[in-house]
């Protein structure tokens, strides 16, 4: 018995390292393509450029961060407000769609989910530009819009916050629908029968059973929409106006037009930190750990 135990022990010790072996490609990938770039970004954000076309020198220059907050607070706030509204709209529009496909799709399910992904076959840029044609001032959409009592004859959709938020919602909608669909798909719909059996109206059954069980999908979808939306610049570029500029626009300009890498890096890091903080709060608030079924 004693000898056996030792052998088992050794086997155990050996296998203790095995998981790290399997993890190593992932860890290497993470280090190379996440940690190292973030490190470089962090270093750049604390650097100063001696002059415009010289390389930044690392000198613990924290002023990049004070500038980030001081000069671009409006853009940050606007980015989060726009991304937040877009996320909410994506839930409101995407959830019923995902629900319908998951519950009523039948044998068309895969086809319908395929349709949700179809827009990805066209470039994101082209799709955004396409909206400028659809929403043009001389177009039928705006003509209808102008009939609304609170919209004047010179009302417009393009170059307004509405267009930018709409573009963000549209462009990231699939990222909302897919995870929600997956979580709805997993739900045993006999649970809704059980709820009905126990006196829940159809709405009550949805509210108390289906929706809580689909929250992991809503959570994942919200992150997948909110994060890229908060850093987006293309929607503002094509559908917005100077009054709707977002932080992504500023970062893009700082990098590519002004070559102000330190400032751009500082802005990126602030964006990253704020988003991470929001995600943590959000996940705590939703308590996704307990939802694992």
């Amino acid at each position: 018995m004693a000898r056996r135990a030792t052998a088992d022990d050794r086997g155990l010790r050996k296998s203790k390292w095995a998981p790290y072996g399997f993890l190593s490609p992932g860890i290497i990938w993470l280090v190379l393509f996440f940690l190292v770039p973030v490190g470089i970004l962090l270093k750049a954000s604390l650097s100063t450029k001696p002059s415009r076309f010289e390389e930044p020198v690392f000198d613990w220059n924290f002023s990049n961060f004070s500038t980030a907050f001081g000069d671009y607070g409006t853009e940050f706030v606007r980015s989060f407000v726009f991304a937040g509204i877009a996320t909410l709209l994506a839930i409101l529009i995407g959830y019923p769609l995902a629900y319908w496909i998951a519950t009523r799709g039948g044998r068309w399910k895969n086809f319908l989910i395929g349709l949700v992904v179809v827009p990805f076959f066209t470039s994101y840029l082209i799709r955004t530009i396409a909206w400028t044609s659809i929403l043009q001032d001389d177009g039928p959409v705006v003509a209808l819009y102008r009939l609304l009592p609170w919209v004047g004859a010179d009302g417009r959709i393009l170059a307004t916050p509405m267009a930018v938020i709409g573009g963000l919602t549209y462009n990231f909608m699939s990222f909302m629908i897919l995870p929600i669909y997956v979580s709805l798909e997993k739900i045993d719909f006999r649970l809704t029968e059980a709820a009905a059996d126990l006196g829940s109206t159809p709405w009550g059954a949805f509210r108390k059973v289906v929706f809580p069980l689909s929250l992991p999908g809503v959570f994942a979808g919200s992150l997948l929409v909110f994060i890229p939306a908060a850093g987006d610049y293309l929607n503002n570029r094509y559908l917005g106006s100077p009054q709707t500029s977002m932080i992504g626009t500023v970062v893009q300009n700082k990098f590519l037009v002004q070559f102000d890498y330190p400032q751009a890096a500082a802005l990126s890091i602030v964006l990253m930190v704020i988003i991470t903080a929001m995600v943590l709060v959000y996940s705590r608030f939703l308590g996704t750990e307990g939802l694992a079924v």
């Binding site: 045993d188 006999r190 029968e193 059973v209 069980l213 307990g290 939802l291 079924v293």
Partner: peptide
């Protein structure tokens, strides 16, 4: 129910 259908959440 046959599978009990308890609410997992």
């Amino acid at each position: 129910f046959q599978n009990y259908a308890l609410f997992p959440h």
